[in-house]
Design a binder for these strands. Structure first.
Length: 108
DNA sequence: CTGCTGACTGGTA
DNA sequence: GTACCAGCCAGCA
């Protein structure tokens, strides 16, 4: 079967992230079929300006907001907070608990 | 085709 | 907890 470009795949995954939850670049990469392509995921997010793609739900593995090229990084935190995510100046509160694909076991 | 960069991650100090 | 280093993949010049 035909597989869309990695880019389209990543975007599709991001759109599947429910509101109020967040996913790491690694998670998105894994869901996209390339668990080791988080680097590329970041590049794709950077170029992603599609309003239908909640790129703000994609955060760093440490619970950091990561980056934001669509505007101020602070705005990203505002968007997440609007969905019910508690975000501090540079970290997400309870990141582990709201993380999409929650870790059933501790430490992968 | 070759090489570099990047909204990253994990490990070590 | 923070800081630095090396590894990894896809996209672009």
């Amino acid at each position: 079967m035909k597989v869309a470009s990695f880019r389209a795949r990543v975007l599709a995954v991001v759109r599947r992230i429910p509101a109020g939850r967040v996913a790491t670049y690694g998670d998105v990469a894994e869901l996209a079929g390339h668990p080791r392509a988080w680097r590329a995921v970041g590049s794709i997010m950077r170029d992603c300006r599609d309003p239908a793609t909640p790129c703000h739900r994609v955060v760093g593995a440490a619970g950091t907001l990561g980056g934001w090229s669509a505007g101020n990084l602070q705005l990203k935190g505002e968007l997440l907070r609007e969905e019910g995510v508690v975000v501090t100046t540079r970290r997400i509160r309870g990141f582990r608990d709201i993380r999409w694909r929650r870790l059933s076991r501790r430490h992968r």
